[in-house]
Design a protein around this nucleic acid. Structure first.
Length: 140
DNA sequence: CCCTGATTCGC
DNA sequence: GCGAATCAGG
């Protein structure tokens, strides 16, 4: 098994790969499995081969579906920011963690109380100041 | 079935 | 970051 991917081994790997050598062959050459080779190659960002292969959206392991938050899924503590048009099919909510005492998550809270300012210099200035203050507070 | 590379996911 | 398992095309 591979002890470490030394620069030399990576160089050999890259060289063989660029020469069009099969992963299994490279693996034999470096005494690693072909999976290790293809994994490393992919990680190094080397040019791909055999392009027309398109993998499935990954099943069999888990179901990391973002789960759309419909009305019945919406519970206290979840952001009630509406997504889509109420009454229309597929209407749902953000569902993120809402801020304490507020019906929306933080990003949507910001949107919620945005005033109808357009090209207001003061607003920009205030926003910048607020951002700076926030960053400063966070840095602490 | 064999080969190939691609992607995911536990470590 | 690594690579086995798994997936997909040929």
């Amino acid at each position: 098994m591979s002890v470490d991917w030394t620069p030399e081994r990576i160089e050999i790997l890259t060289q063989l790969w660029s020469e069009g050598i099969a992963t299994s062959e490279i693996g034999r050459r470096l005494d690693v499995t072909k999976n290790a080779v293809v994994g490393k190659v992919h990680r190094l960002g080397l040019p791909k081969r055999q392009s027309p292969i398109q993998r499935k959206p990954a099943k069999k392991k888990k179901a990391p579906e973002p789960e759309v938050i419909t009305m019945d899924k919406l519970r206290p503590g979840m952001c009630a920011w509406p997504i889509g048009d109420p009454g229309m099919p597929g209407f749902h909510f953000c569902g993120g963690k809402s801020t304490e005492g507020k019906p929306y998550c933080e990003p949507h809270c910001e949107q919620a109380y945005v005033r109808n300012v357009k090209e207001d210099k003061n607003a920009k200035k205030a926003a910048a100041a607020a951002a700076a203050a926030k960053a400063k507070a966070k840095a602490k």
